[in-house]
Deep mutational scan, measured.
Amino acid sequence: NQESVVAAVLIPINTALTVGMMTTRVVSPTGAPAEDIPRLISMQVNQVVPMGTTLMPDMVKGYAP
């Protein structure tokens, strides 16, 4: 099972992602793949992402898996 990126903390809208904001988990439906964490760092979210929420590609500005 592939791990997806999950918010480790509450991420406010327009916040640039840091490694400490993200964790990985096997979830369904799958979100952004765990191996993309290095690409996701410094990208901004376009909505509030509550802690424990799977990071879906459409939540991150300019990100395409």
Rank of each mutant, 00 (worst) to 15 (best):
N1Y: 12
N1M: 12
N1T: 13
N1R: 10
N1E: 15
N1V: 14
N1S: 14
Q2A: 13
Q2H: 13
Q2I: 14
Q2S: 13
E3S: 12
E3C: 12
E3T: 08
S4R: 05
S4G: 00
S4T: 05
S4N: 03
S4M: 06
V5S: 00
V5T: 00
V5P: 01
V5C: 08
V5Y: 02
V5A: 02
V5K: 00
V5R: 01
V6W: 06
V6H: 01
V6N: 02
V6P: 00
A7N: 00
A7M: 07
A7S: 03
A7W: 07
A7K: 01
A7E: 03
A7H: 01
A7Y: 07
A8I: 08
A8T: 11
A8H: 06
A8N: 05
V9F: 00
V9M: 12
V9G: 01
V9W: 00
V9N: 01
L10M: 15
L10W: 12
L10N: 14
L10D: 15
L10H: 15
I11N: 00
I11L: 00
I11K: 00
I11H: 00
I11S: 00
P12R: 09
P12T: 09
P12M: 09
P12L: 09
P12F: 09
P12S: 08
P12H: 09
I13K: 15
I13C: 11
I13L: 12
I13S: 11
I13H: 06
N14K: 03
N14D: 13
T15E: 05
T15F: 08
A16N: 11
A16C: 13
A16K: 14
A16S: 13
A16W: 12
A16T: 12
L17S: 06
L17C: 07
L17H: 05
T18W: 09
T18Y: 07
T18L: 09
T18F: 08
T18K: 11
V19A: 15
V19P: 11
V19K: 14
V19L: 15
V19Q: 15
V19C: 12
G20M: 12
G20A: 14
G20F: 12
G20V: 10
M21I: 07
M21E: 08
M21T: 05
M21H: 08
M21Y: 01
M21C: 08
M21D: 09
M21P: 07
M22N: 08
M22R: 07
M22V: 09
T23W: 09
T23Q: 08
T23R: 07
T23S: 11
T23A: 10
T23F: 09
T24C: 09
T24P: 09
T24F: 09
T24E: 08
T24M: 07
T24Q: 08
T24K: 13
T24V: 11
R25E: 09
R25W: 08
R25P: 08
R25C: 10
R25D: 09
R25V: 09
V26W: 11
V26A: 11
V26F: 12
V26N: 12
V26C: 12
V26S: 10
V27Y: 00
V27K: 02
S28I: 13
S28R: 09
S28H: 14
S28D: 14
P29G: 04
P29C: 08
P29H: 00
P29A: 02
P29E: 04
P29N: 03
T30S: 14
T30H: 15
T30V: 15
T30F: 13
T30K: 15
T30N: 14
T30Q: 15
G31D: 02
G31I: 01
G31W: 02
A32P: 03
A32W: 12
A32F: 15
A32R: 00
A32C: 13
P33I: 05
P33C: 06
P33Q: 03
P33H: 06
P33A: 05
A34W: 07
A34N: 04
A34G: 09
A34E: 03
A34F: 05
A34P: 10
E35K: 14
E35L: 14
E35I: 13
D36L: 06
D36I: 06
D36E: 06
D36P: 03
D36Y: 04
I37F: 01
I37Q: 04
P38H: 12
P38E: 10
P38F: 10
P38T: 09
L40F: 04
L40H: 01
L40D: 02
L40V: 02
L40P: 01
L40M: 04
L40G: 03
L40E: 02
I41L: 10
I41M: 00
I41T: 02
I41Q: 00
I41P: 07
S42P: 01
S42K: 07
S42G: 15
S42I: 08
M43Q: 05
M43H: 11
M43N: 04
Q44K: 14
Q44M: 14
Q44P: 03
V45T: 12
V45F: 01
N46W: 08
N46G: 04
N46K: 10
N46S: 09
Q47T: 11
Q47P: 00
V48H: 12
V48P: 11
V49T: 04
V49M: 02
V49H: 00
V49P: 01
V49I: 15
V49W: 05
P50L: 10
P50Y: 10
P50C: 10
P50A: 10
M51F: 05
M51I: 09
M51W: 05
M51Y: 06
M51S: 11
M51C: 11
M51Q: 15
G52T: 03
G52S: 01
G52H: 07
G52A: 03
G52C: 09
G52K: 02
T53E: 11
T53D: 10
T54H: 04
T54P: 04
T54A: 04
T54W: 00
L55A: 01
L55D: 02
L55P: 00
L55V: 06
L55T: 02
L55C: 07
L55W: 03
M56D: 04
M56P: 05
M56K: 04
M56N: 04
M56R: 07
P57D: 05
P57N: 04
P57K: 05
P57H: 05
P57Q: 01
P57F: 06
P57R: 05
P57I: 08
D58R: 13
D58T: 13
D58H: 15
D58N: 14
D58V: 07
D58M: 10
M59R: 02
M59D: 01
M59G: 02
M59Y: 01
M59V: 05
M59Q: 03
V60Q: 03
V60T: 02
V60C: 06
V60L: 07
V60I: 15
V60D: 05
V60N: 01
K61R: 15
K61S: 12
K61Y: 13
K61N: 14
G62M: 05
G62D: 12
G62F: 06
G62V: 00
G62Y: 02
Y63A: 04
A64P: 11
A64C: 15
A64Q: 15
A64L: 14
A64S: 15
A64G: 12
A64E: 15
P65A: 11
P65L: 09
P65D: 10
